[in-house]
Design a protein around this nucleic acid. Structure first.
Length: 805
DNA sequence: AGCACGCCGACT
DNA sequence: GTCGGCGTGCTC
């Protein structure tokens, strides 16, 4: 029997980022298992922390006195072997603490809380009691909540040994319970009583009859019995008093999606879909890791391919994981999966309450749910025996977490695919350059869905040159062609979607006459406007110059910040079309829970003619009556100082164009732009992903950007700007000493938004192809960062960042 | 993270 | 002279 447990304690620091050895006391010997949470004494005082058991052994290389594990928090392991290994890998590749990774993988209710209490050890004077324990002893001891004088006084008493602090580690995880009942007497006896009461108490007799049909070992919810028999709970209470039945709390799941779903059958596939399903399910059959890229135009029926592939995995008694971006995880989407797989589906996303998340997690852990649909963190769902992993809209940047651990769900998916010997299916109409390039290299099997189901044609896309429009009309958000098109739709009682691109709002300067955007002379990247310093800055090399008042290209005076807001546009739109019914969907109008769905439902019921919104309307909406899509400002994302600006613009325009003409009526798209000749816009008009890919790859090659290079971003932040900058310069010094000549170090530069929450941010980006010294160097930097961290200097490492700015 | 130990200025 | 301020090292 193992004597020693290896524990990762819940103390996120570098020196506790490895297992600590604890003795397993005899009474816990049969309880402690790898993957369970425990509480352990930690440090000199009486401090107690929680931790996770990652190993059991008889020996340890720690040559000190081992402390014993204090208690076990779980009845069964909460981490499978797979997830334990995944946590270790994740910590390694993202430069995060192991305990942080473990907590990220678990529902938040399983994060143990430590509470401290303070109480007298000797009788205190009345005066002391009144001052420090007005509500009686013991009292909660939260140093951040107590008044300074009270805290000081309590600490003085503590030093005098008159009071002591005790620690309590609690896990909030609690299953919801309802009242359950089960028969307390044998069937024969119940029958006897039933006969006795039959005449005078029909309800009691009915209940007794029902009790005889029940499994004596299984609790049934009181409400369920009442529903089945028509016997009120009052009768059951009487019956319990008489000893016919026993009442006990019964664990139930909170059901986040209780509305019934009409089941659906698999749809008939077209030839392309069939090829895709065959290829994917072959890998499922053979239990083989094979990664697929399903490249399908909008409306090509990717979802049906996913569902039928999942069905095959389930037939083989394996499980399935289907990843969807948070923004696309709508009830419509979930219902589509539930309609096919019913009760086997679990849903994980941030819109659920913590209790609901925990319940869905438990259903998966118990094996009751075998299909998991969820957003980013669902990639850590405790499914066993995975048979397929699907990641829809794989190009979505929300799959990358922007706090520690800074992981990309796609990388985790590939890891789990390999571990489980199962295929990983990445799907998109506009794959990320990284993924498409890997497919080109043969790392992923490419499956094309070029046809729209039902052969609906792709919409006609018009580019509106706003440079011309601005010349002819006053400064407005709407071009004449778009206004005409809107009027046509209103006349025909058809619906339309107008998108306002909010990214990069007001952050760059563009000429309204020629579309000229000020770029950095060294980096070929847009300069960002900094109102605080009244300069234009490059966030790659630090180049800085004055804000232009005359366009350097055409000498026009109409060079100014570019940007506008949805509310302003709504007002203008309503003025143009006084009778049009407009729904606005942006961050403001969807802040309330459920507001998002409500707006979509209203639009679906044709309670409005125009849906005006930001990026969030571009994804996955499917309204058959929409025949017009307008993009008011296609350029804003292009102006961002990010090498992915073109890619994002192309993806967004292609996605939003796909919203038009989903049914019989043909669709039309109008893209208003000041850069009609930009390849991202031209190729989005032609809906030519392949040419965009080739063109953009060329640009990336020229600029030494991913996917030709790997990238790591380091950021320093501090309240004092000079401290942050100095730290970054020191780091660059360390890097340049250790890295090879081939590595490209960009920076240090201030971040695009240099000051956030009273802190200044400085960053450096390293681009490299092969750099064996990088990892040890970064570890060294992490180690060194600990000392100044005391003074508020935070260093973060982001491998393959999504935002360079 | 959070606790104890340890070294310096203003008080009984 | 001590109390208590914060800066530093360490936690199986």
């Amino acid at each position: 029997m193992a004597q020693i447990g290896q524990i990762i304690v819940d103390v996120p620091t570098m020196q506790t980022n490895e297992p600590y050895s604890y003795a397993i006391p005899a009474d816990l010997e049969n309880q402690v298992q790898v993957g369970m949470r425990v509480t352990v004494p930690f440090g000199r005082g009486h401090r107690v922390v929680s931790g996770v058991v990652v190993g059991l052994s008889d020996v340890t290389n720690f040559d000190g006195q081992l402390k014993p594990i204090q208690s076990v928090l779980d009845l069964a392991p909460i981490l499978t072997t797979e997830l334990q290994q995944l946590a270790a890998w994740l910590a390694d590749t993202t430069y995060a603490f192991r305990i942080t990774c473990i907590q990220t993988m678990l529902p938040s209710l399983l994060k143990a809380q430590t509470e401290r209490q303070i109480q007298p050890t000797v009788p205190l004077t009345d005066q002391e009691m009144a001052t420090y324990f007005p509500d009686g002893a013991p009292r909660a001891f939260d140093t951040s909540k107590l008044a300074d004088t009270t805290l000081a006084g309590l600490l003085r008493l503590q030093r005098a040994g008159k009071v002591e602090v005790t620690y309590q580690v609690t896990s909030k995880a609690a299953a919801k319970t309802t009242t359950g009942i089960k028969p307390a007497l044998p069937v024969a006896k119940l029958q006897e009583i039933q006969a006795e009461v039959a005449k005078r108490a029909p309800k009691q007799a009915e209940l007794l009859a029902y009790l005889q049909t029940m499994d004596p070992d299984k609790l049934v919810a009181q409400s369920q019995v009442s529903h089945a028999t028509g016997v009120s709970t009052a009768v059951m209470t009487t019956a319990a008093d008489k000893g016919w039945l026993t009442k006990q709390p019964l664990e139930v799941y909170r059901d986040p999606f209780h509305q019934p779903v009409t089941p659906t059958k698999p749809l008939k596939l077209n030839a392309e879909q069939q090829v895709a399903v065959t290829a994917i399910t072959k890998a499922v059959d053979e239990q083989r890791t094979e990664n697929f890229l399903v490249e399908g135009v909008t409306g090509s029926g990717k979802t049906e391919v996913y569902l039928q592939s999942i069905a095959v995995a389930l037939q083989q008694h394996r499980t399935a994981l289907m990843m969807v971006p948070e923004i696309a995880l709508t009830p419509q989407m979930v219902n589509r999966v539930k309609a096919r797989f019913g009760q086997r589906v679990a849903v994980l996303h941030s819109g659920l309450s913590k209790g609901e998340q925990y319940d869905e997690w438990r259903r998966i852990d118990q094996g009751e749910a075998t299909v998991v649909v969820g957003a980013r963190s669902a990639i850590f769902a405790p499914v066993r025996n995975l048979g397929i992993i699907i990641m829809d809209e794989e190009h979505e940047s929300s799959y990358k977490q922007d706090e520690n651990p800074r992981y990309h769900a796609r990388d985790v998916a590939l890891w789990r695919g390999k571990y489980n010997h199962c295929p990983v299916v990445l799907g998109s109409a506009t794959p990320s350059l990284e993924t498409r390039a890997r497919a080109a290299k043969g790392l992923y099997t490419r499956l094309l869905l070029a046809k729209r189901v039902n052969d609906h044609p792709l919409p006609t896309v018009h580019i509106v040159d706003m440079r011309e429009e601005v010349k002819q009309r006053a400064d407005g958000d709407f071009s004449q062609p778009l206004l005409t098109a809107i009027q046509e739709r209103l006349d025909r009682h058809e619906q339309m979607v107008l998108m306002l691109n909010r990214r990069g709002y007001s952050s760059f300067v563009m000429c309204r006459d020629c579309g000229f955007v000020l770029k950095c002379p060294n980096c070929d990247i847009s300069l960002t406007l900094h109102m605080d310093t009244h300069t234009m800055k490059c966030h790659y090399c630090g180049h800085e110059e004055a804000i232009p008042h005359i366009c350097p290209n055409c000498h026009s005076r109409k060079i100014r910040y570019y940007g506008t807001g949805t509310q302003k546009v709504e007002t203008a739109l309503q003025k143009e079309f006084p009778t049009a019914r407009i729904l606005r969907m942006d961050v403001d109008s969807t802040r309330r829970k459920g507001a998002h769905e409500k707006i979509l439902r209203q639009f679906g019921d044709h309670q409005a003619d125009i849906l005006l919104g930001t990026q969030m309307i571009a994804k996955g909406l499917d309204f058959p009556n929409v025949t017009l899509v307008g993009v008011l400002n296609a350029d804003t994302a292009l102006g961002l100082p990010d090498f992915r600006a073109s890619e994002r613009t192309f993806q967004l325009l292609t996605q939003v164009s796909g919203r038009a003409g989903r049914a019989e009526k043909p669709g039309e798209v109008f893209i208003q732009t000041f850069n009609p000749d930009h390849y991202a816009i031209e190729l989005a008009q032609q809906q030519d992903y392949e040419r965009f890919f080739v063109t953009e790859m060329h640009m990336r090659h020229q600029g030494n950007y991913p996917p030709y290079y790997f990238a790591v971003q380091l950021t320093a932040s501090h309240e004092d700007e000079a401290t942050a900058a100095k730290a970054m310069y020191q780091i660059v010094g360390t890097l340049q000493k250790g890295l090879s000549k081939d590595a490209i170090v960009l920076g240090p530069t201030p971040k695009a938004i240099a000051r956030v929450k009273r802190k200044y941010y400085y960053q450096v980006v390293i681009k490299y192809k092969r750099e064996p010294q990088l990892r040890p160097l970064l570890e060294k930097i992490r180690q060194a960062a600990q000392i100044p961290a005391r003074h508020g200097l935070a260093i973060t490492i982001d491998s393959e960042p999504m935002n360079f700015m």
